[in-house]
Every structure is written in C-alpha cells, then in structure tokens.
Design a protein around this nucleic acid. Structure first.
Length: 1026
RNA sequence: GGGCGGUUAGCUCAGCGGUAGAGCACUACGUUGACAUCGUAGGGGUCACUGGUUCGAUCCCAGUACCGCCCACCA
C-alpha cells in the first residue's frame, strides 16, 4: 500500500466524518475512562435559519479543539449542540421568504398560520448550519441537538418566567421603552446601536401666555451683561420638532437667573391650530444644563428618555404622538378634545396619571398620519413661516432661522437599522437589579473565570450599572408569554356602557403558575392546553355569583373580542335565562419573550432542567463557555444571572471570550461591504483542517484576527508536509509499533532516536500547557514547528541513511521510533486538524480505535529527556548548519561532496562525529573527514564546539568571498562580545543581578570570545593565501 | 463624556525585565528516491514618541501622538 501524493480533503473529509458518526464517536461520554472527569461545553446556539460565518467557524473550531483534546484524554466529554429560534431574525427571514414566493403576508394569514409557517421554515433551514458545522469537523453529540423552542426547553422558559413573577422579579408596566417602528416591537437597550449622524438643532420661540414679557439678561463669566432685552417668549432648542406637540412643560435649571422671572408661568407651544394652542408650564428641574442651548428644555415625557424622568419627577403629563410604525397618530380623540384634556392636566384639574394616554391624541389634523420625518419638515416650515423661529444674522448680517448643524447620537435598531423611537407602552420587564449580584460575585471571587481578564472589567461595568430588561416583544415567533387575562366581574357591572359592544371593566390577570403547570394534563404543553387555561380561571368562575358561576371559559383572540363575547353572552342570558350558555372569555397576552430570555436558560434548558436529569447532574455546571465578546451582555451576563437565580449555581467554570474575525485589512466582515470570507468556500478550497489550523494559530487572546487566504494556504501546505512525512515513513517501513516498553514509547539506543524522543516529550508538554491555558495559538505553533522543523527538517533527513543503511538493528529501531514519532504528531495535531490526522492514522496501520478515540499521551518532557543525546545532536546540527551556510555563501555546487579536515577534536566532539558520521556526511555533503596538523591555506573554516573544522576547497571558492563572510560573522560576534563585556564590567550588575544570570553571561562571553578567536585565525590563514 | 485595547521585519501577528521571533512576501541556489503545496542559504527591526523605575526596559510606571472598540440621556 502506498499513500497518494496528496491528501484529497474534499473527498476524505466527508468520508471520515461519516465514519466518526457511524462509530458514535461524539456521543456524550464516548471514550471516557472509568475515572474520566466530566468536561462539558455548550455550543453558543446559532440562529436556526442562519448559515455558518467566519465567527462561527472560529468559535466552533476552538470548542472542537478543547473537546477533542479532552475526549482523547479520556474525560467524560459532552459537547451539547443546538440552535436558537432567534425571534426577530427568524420572523424576518420567513417573511422575506414568504414575500419572495408571493405567499400571503403575515398579517393576512394570521398568527397561528404564521407560526406554523415559521416552523416550516425552521425545518427547511435547520439542516444548513448543522451540516456546515459538520463540515468544519465539529464533534458535537448531535443526538442531543437542542432547540430553544423545543417542548422541554419551553418548560424551562415557562418555569423561569412564572418563578420570576412569583418572586417579584418580573413585572409588567407602562414604561418608556425603545421602539422599533420597522418591526413594530419593543426592543431592549442592548438591541439599540447609537450612531453618530449629522443632525440639526432648531431654536424656536415659545410665546408667553397672555403676551406677557420679561427682561432677559445674559452675562458672561465675569458677570458682565452681554445681552439684555425684553422678551415675550422663551427660546427652546430641539433636534426633534415633531415631538413639540407632546410637550408637557418647559424646564429650566432652578439656578438659572435668566428665566427666574417666568418660572411658574405658562407658555404656548408654537405649533398646531392657532386658535387652540396648548399652554404648558415653565418648571424647574436639575436636568437642564444652563450652558447648553438656551438653557430651557421642552419636556416630552412620552418621546424622550431624559424628559421621561423629568416628567415623572414633576408630575408632568405625557402624550403619545406616534403610532407603532412611527407615523403621527391618526387614532383616538380629536385634537380639540385631546387639547381640552391636556389643558385640564396642565391646569392641575386632573393629574397626569388620569390622562388616558392611549386615547388622547394631540396631533392636529394637518399632521395626522404623516411619517415622523415628514411631520418634522412640515412643522419646522410652519413654525418658521409664522416667524417663531429664533433668528440669527448670517455672514452678511441678514437674519436667518437659527438651525445648528451638529453631530448627534441617534439610536438605530441593530436589526432593522431604522431610527428607534422612545415609546410609552405596556411591556414586561425583568428587574435585573434583583438577580445581578450573584453574577457579579461569581466572577469577583473566581468561582467563574472570565478570560482574557480584561473582559471582566467590561462585564462588571455593565452589570454594576444594569437597567431593567424589557423582555416582551410584539412579535409572533417566540415563547408566548404564559399569561391570560379575564375581566374581573366581581368588581364591575356588566353593562355595555357605550352601547357598541365594548365593555370597560377592569381586567384581571391570571398567570400560569407553578401549580397550574402541574395541573395540566400534559405537563409539557400545559401552557398551550385549553384545559390548563380553564384551570387557571376555575377559582374565578367559582367565586362569581349565580348564574355566572356556571359560565364556561372560552379563549378568544384579544381583549376587544372578549368584551364583545362577554356582552353578547350576557345579552343572550337576558333573553333565555340559560346559565349553561354563559361564557367567560379569556385572552392570552399577545407578546412573546425576548429571544435572549430563553437563550439565557441555555445551560439548564439543554441539560433537561427543570427535570433532574442525569446530564444535569454530570455536566452542570459546565466546564467552559467559548463565545464572542459581542454577546457578553446579551448572553453571558444574562446566563450568569438566570442560572444563579433559578438554581443558585454558576453555569460555567470558565468563560473564554474570543475576538472578532476581520478581513485581511482589519475591517469587520459585512455583507454590504462585500468583504465576507465564507468559511464554506475556504473549506472547499483549502480543506477544513487548514481553515481550522489558521483560526487556531491566530487565536491569541484578546485580539482581533485578520484572516487572509495566504495564511490558510500556508497551513494547507503544512498538512501536505505532514502527509508526506507520513508517506515517507510508510514507504520506509516505519510502521512498526512492536518495539517498545509498556509505556508505548519505543526503546532507542542511537543518539538521533533518543534525541527525537526527548523533543517529542517536550512538545507534548508544551501543547498541553498551551491548551490548559487556552492559548490556542501557542498550542498550534508548538505542534507546527515540531512537526515541520524538528521532525521533517531534521529527523526524517537523519533517518534516511539509517533506514537505507546496512545496520539492521539500527534500521529496525529507527523504523519503530519514526512510526511512533509520526503517531505522536498525528495525536498532537488531531484536535486542530482532525481530518488529515484521522486519515493518516488509518492508513499507517491497523488500529484498535480511530484517532478520535486514541489515547492522549501521558509521558512528560522529563520522562523522555536525554541530556547526552540532546547535546550531541545539537553539535551535529550545528556542524551541518555551519557547513551548509559556508557552502551556500561560497557557491559550492549543492550536490557536490567535498572533503573536510580538522585539527583535532576533543573527546566529546570526536565521539559525536563517530556516532553520527553518516548523518553529517549526507546532510552536509561531506565526502571525508581527516585530521591535519593545520588547516590548509584558504580552507573554509567551520567553527564547532570542541574543535576547528575546515573545508579545504580553496581551489573551488572565491577567497575574497570567504573573507567577507568571516568578517561579517566576526563583526556580529564582536558586537555581542562588547555588549556582554560591558555588562560584566558594571560592578552593580554582579551585585544586583541573580547569580545564575551573571554566570550565564560569563559563559556566554567566553564562548563568544572563543568563536571570535577561531574566526580571527581563519582570517589570518586567508591573508596568507592572498 | 467615561472605559478598554493597540502601535514589534515589507505585510499579518506572537513574545516579554537579561543575546528580537513566526508565517507570508522578498533574494540566491537547488528536479538531493517523502514533499516544488518543496528544500538549502540569506536580506530585512534604534520593538510609536518623551520621561521615570532598574545593574539592565521592546517588556514595568507616567505622559504624548495616532488607530480601533465598548459604554453614555446633554435637549
């Protein structure tokens, strides 16, 4: 059997992966020794409809390296795979797909049908990313593949939600939240990207009520009056004129003397129907900065986060102006009626809380329905037209409306890329402050370790300043909030006040509780189960007076439908007095949970919680989480908080945070820029091993990596190199594995063989040390340079004469050692390059087990150390390198064998020569070695420990070239000697430096001086020739 | 406005209190019975700048410059 010349990655990878799967090689606990300790990693679940990008490739390569390494070490390994339902992203993808195929729109098909359609989409695309992970070589336990919407996972989500609610950690309320007008849903702070854009700041006059005036005085720092005038207005700066209609007040700083005369007075919002403009109070608050703008701030509580705070503090009413799409509202009450309510609120006739913000609509007819940006233009034009813009003289002195061009930070949705609106809506929140502390403490005490350590700071900073987490989303795809509502009929008359079928009773909330959960017939789907819902309200019904206590619970779409159903049912009862026909309509909360709420439960949920499964007992807490820095807040911090909150345990021992994969110019890869490298394309072109090895070799902690194809090609070449070394071994019968001690390490007597064993021991330890410290780049580079520069460059070359020589015993020994060394390369490289190593493992012998389950070696560098052989081989290598270097510079024909002479070698050098003569002769192209009294004139000098060697080839070389060569070396040496000498001459050095450093420096100096002396002798000899 | 990171060979990056390293690129030579996806030899760096600590600084400290990232409610 002879190996092909190259490894055919495309063909072999698929075949090998199938063999691993067929052998159940990745199953949890596979290859675990009886005493194997658990080692578990949870995959960061990719979006189920996603496809593999470079970040995934990087992330999963690192995980697979650790997993394969631990599996070979005999640990009880679990790599838990799965995908995320990715609420917004998946809903978006599906809708796009539906539009593409001219299917009915989401709203046209209705919620139930749409959710079914998304499931269909999920089933269609799920295989994509899983297949791609397999192509990368990921050795997950695929039989355990999880999905964040699976029944079991859903349980974990429900249990957590209800638990949190019962503990007062989850609450519902009308709050100002970030609203995405594109997806028409609330989003959390983290999903907002603040981007600097060129904005405008307009300055408008808010006239004082009743034409009142005051003296406006402005002073400079020294108190000198720089401006003094009578004004009948207060000047306001705003970047958002369209929100003026919702102003509830104008605020100034309490210390701002400019406005002191008018505090408490009313001013008029300069927009809307002239005959019916709203008056708002001028109030004081600490928020306005007197040095910014005019120092006066309009307060629009419903559309600005700062203003929201001011409004709350001061009881200022808030008015919602925009609809869910970000257009000016066109619903609710008329402007006139709304303005009347607002007037009452401003006058203190009603409190801010009494204003029905959903009904009051302060958008004048002229602007109703306009998009927010259109409305802005129209309002600016109208105010300016009316002469209420603050004017500033331009360069020529002509007054112009004062509009500042200035960069402003504007919030954008991270997925929709549209401008986010602060909106006052009913949402569900997690009061994260209540559960954050254990997550902070865990990292502080080291119970969970975050690597690299600098990322801990980022983690702490965010957690220590954590804000409530908005967890409800107005989407259809996701875990629907397990809450049902019904009317509290105990508190209200069932009168249809409006006569239009709408009731206005207080709603009563009912939650799926832990009790309800077990009450359902099918525990896994209790939340969806109508019987479960009936159960939820059983006590409500029972408590109602006859005949209502006979009512049947029916679940309806929403509150509005429920009101109609209730009214109809009651009307019917008036007619037929039949209590069995009475219904009690209930409706479910329409919102779903933030995707990160469920992925926050990924550790527990994938392991079977809330059931007390074996997996949970064995693999939780998990060993390490490998994830990108970009989701520390989104995911890592929340997992920490949620696992602690639910089970009081850390989810991970270690969190390894990796950086971003960028393009070769250092730019972030993005589809719009078009600089995306698709890992699948790269795998096609170079093979998965090369891609993996590249990523691992660049995975220095804490720094972004720039990926270039050149680098990948280089590591593809490395694979070829390894392949050919193995091919050489196979061609030379170096496949024997029958010579060796019980440890499996072969016995060796030849120095070259003893030496390579020692080197192997060293690299084994280096690789383990690097992986233990998550230094993937160090691990790969250690294995790389050992394989290429130690084994291929030297050992294989040394072995050639031995394998082809006549010493049968030496040949056998070398075959065995080489077979073993190549095996060690395969083993050490397998975690990073699983395919090619597995292929070679199979081709190089009949094995009991595949490489994926081979034993990771346990020998240490000390076990295999051999000072004698190592010193000897370093002499041999030194001589060969010297000869090669001299030959190359003297332009001696590469293939030409030349004689060598020496003037006497010390015992050590003589023995080294004697034992390795054939090796040196072959590698240095030396014909013979003879002792001479003195090196011949013009000989090329070879400096070596323990003697002077020379190549008497004056006739074939250029003497002046040799002179130049020697002088150059000498100059370099002299520089070193000087440096060392200077250091030793400094008395403080000897005093302060550790003795071993001083000693080392002394030895170094004498060695260098010896070399220099030899070179000077050689130069002298050359001078004789010339 | 806060915080963090970076600045080392032409390029991409390791390293780190005690002779500056790798890969790629470059130059010269080479079809040596594993490998031209290769081999051998070689060129190339005042380790951003300025101070400080130290016997000794690319490495530690402070500051400066430039680059990048994260967080942040100045209308």
């Amino acid at each position: 059997m002879a190996l092909d010349k190259n490894f055919e990655a495309a063909e072999a990878e698929a075949r090998i992966y199938r063999a691993w799967e067929a052998g159940k090689c990745f199953a949890a606990g596979a290859n675990a020794k009886p005493d194997g300790v658990p080692f578990s990693i949870l995959i960061p679940p990719p979006n189920v409809t996603g496809s593999l990008h470079m970040g995934h490739a990087f992330n999963n390569t690192l995980q697979d390296i650790l997993i394969r390494w631990h599996r070979m070490r005999g640990d009880d390994v679990l790599w838990q795979p799965g995908t995320d339902h990715a609420g917004i992203a998946t809903q978006m993808v599906t809708e796009r797909e539906m539009a593409l195929h001219q299917e009915p729109s989401r709203t046209a098909m209705g919620r139930e049908a749409f959710v079914a359609r998304v499931w269909e989409q999920k089933h269609k695309s799920r295989g994509t990313i899983i297949g791609q992970l397999k192509r990368l070589g990921a050795s997950c336990d695929w039989d355990r593949e999880a999905f964040t919407m699976d029944g079991g996972f859903h349980d974990a989500v429900l249990k957590s939600f209800v638990d949190f609610y019962d503990r007062g950690i989850i609450y519902r309320g009308k709050r100002l939240v970030n609203w995405d007008p594109q997806f028409e849903t609330a989003i959390s702070d983290l999903e907002v990207e603040n981007i600097e854009v060129q904005g405008h700041m307009w300055h408008f006059k808010y006239p004082l009520a009743g034409g009142e005036t005051y003296t406006y005085v402005e002073r400079d720092e020294d108190g000198h009056v720089v401006r003094e005038e009578e004004r009948d207005y207060i000047s306001i700066a705003t970047t958002r004129p369209e929100t003026m209609l919702g102003d509830g007040a104008v605020a100034v700083h309490p210390d701002d003397v400019r406005y002191a005369p008018i505090v408490g007075k009313l001013c008029e919002i300069p927009v809307g129907p002239k005959e019916n403009r709203r008056l708002i109070p001028i109030i004081t608050d600490e928020y306005p900065d007197p040095d910014f703008g005019s120092g006066a701030v309009k307060i629009t509580g419903a559309h600005d986060f700062n203003d929201y705070g001011v409004a709350q503090r001061n009881g200022i009413p808030m008015y919602i102006l925009l609809d869910t799409k970000g257009a000016m509202r066109d619903d609710g009450l008329s402007y006139a009626d709304s303005a009347e309510i607002a007037r009452a609120a401003a006058a203190g006739e009603i409190t801010a809380a009494e204003v029905d913000v959903d009904a009051v609509n302060l958008v004048p007819d002229a602007y109703r329905g306009l998009d927010r940006f259109e409305a802005r233009k129209a309002i600016v034009a109208d105010i300016t037209g009316e002469g209420l813009a603050v004017m500033m003289p331009d360069e020529e002195g002509t007054p112009q409306p004062f509009v500042e061009q200035k960069p402003i930070m504007q919030p954008f949705g991270d997925r929709s890329k549209v401008v986010i609106e602060p909106m006052l809506t009913d949402q569900w929140f997690v009061d994260t402050a209540q559960i954050v502390q254990p997550a902070i403490d865990a990292v502080r005490t080291g119970e969970t370790r975050i690597l690299p350590e600098q990322d801990q700071k980022v983690y702490f900073h965010w957690l220590e300043n954590i804000e409530p987490w908005t967890i409800s989303r107005q989407l259809w795809w996701g875990h629907r909030i397990p809450v049902w509502y019904g009317f509290d009929l105990r508190l209200q008359d069932f009168v249809d006040d409006e006569g239009d079928g709408t009731l206005d009773p207080t709603e009563m909330l009912r939650f799926l509780t832990a009790d309800n959960l077990v009450r359902g017939t099918d525990r896994h789907h209790a939340a969806m189960d109508f019987d479960g819902v009936t159960g939820l309200f059983a006590d409500v019904i029972a408590a109602l007076p006859l005949p209502l206590s006979h009512a049947q619970v029916v679940e309806v779409e929403d509150r509005h439908t429920a009101a109609h159903a209730m009214a109809r049912s009651l009307a019917q009862y008036e007619i037929d007095q039949d209590p069995t026909k009475l219904v009690y309509p209930v409706w479910r909360d329409a919102d779903v949970l933030d995707t990160w709420f469920s992925s926050g439960l990924w550790p527990l949920g994938t392991l079977g919680w809330p059931e007390d499964t074996d997996e949970l007992k064995r693999y939780f807490p998990t060993s390490v989480l490998i994830t990108g820095f970009d989701i520390i807040f989104f995911w890592v911090a929340r997992m920490m908080m949620m696992q602690y909150a639910m089970v009081g345990q850390r989810p991970f021992d270690t969190v390894y945070v990796h950086a971003l994969v960028r393009d070769e110019k250092g730019k972030k890869m993005s589809k719009s820029v078009g600089n995306v490298l698709d890992p699948l394309d790269l795998i096609d072109e170079y093979g998965a091993d090369a891609v993996r090895f590249t990523l691992a070799s660049m995975a220095a902690m804490g720094r972004d990596l720039r990926l270039s194809k050149d680098r990948i090609a280089g590591y593809r070449n490395f694979g070829t190199k390894l392949w050919n070394a193995a091919r050489f071994a196979e061609m030379n019968g170096a496949t024997r594995r029958d010579v060796g001690a019980a440890s499996g390490v072969p016995e060796a007597s030849a120095p070259v063989n003893r030496w390579i064993l020692a080197e192997t021991g060293r690299v084994r330890e280096a690789v383990d040390a690097a992986l233990t410290a998550y230094r993937f780049n160090d691990a790969s580079s250690a294995a790389y340079s050992f394989t290429w520069h130690m084994v291929c460059d030297w050992y294989v070359e040394f072995a050639k004469p031995l394998l082809q020589g006549s010493d049968a015993a030496l040949k056998t020994e070398t075959q065995a050692v080489m077979a073993w060394v190549i095996d060690q390369c395969l083993i050490l490289l397998h975690p990073t390059m699983p395919f090619i190593t597995e292929e070679l493992w199979g081709l190089l012998g009949d094995r009991e087990r595949m490489l994926v389950h081979a034993d990771w070696p346990g020998y240490t560098a000390t076990d295999l150390a051999d000072a004698e052989a190592e010193a000897e081989m370093s002499w041999v290598i030194g001589v060969i390198e010297e000869v090669r270097s001299a030959r190359a510079q003297m332009h001696v024909a590469a293939g030409l064998y030349v004689p060598m002479v020496h003037t006497g070698l010390d015992a050590e050098a003589a023995e080294a020569w004697a034992r390795n003569e054939t090796l040196i002769k072959r590698l240095a192209r030396i014909e013979s070695l003879d002792q001479v009294d003195a090196l011949p004139k013009g000989a090329v000098t070879i400096s070596a420990r323990g003697g002077t060697l020379g190549l008497p080839i004056a006739d074939i070389i250029d003497v002046s070239a040799e002179k130049a060569r020697l002088e150059k070396s000498l100059a370099k040496l002299d520089k070193e000697v000087n440096g060392l000498q200077r250091r030793l001459d400094n008395p403080k050095f000897a005093e302060s430096a550790p003795s071993e450093v001083v000693e080392e420096t002394r030895q170094n100096l004498s060695a260098r001086e010896g070399e220099a002396a030899r070179l000077r002798e050689a130069l002298a000899r050359l001078a004789e020739v010339a």
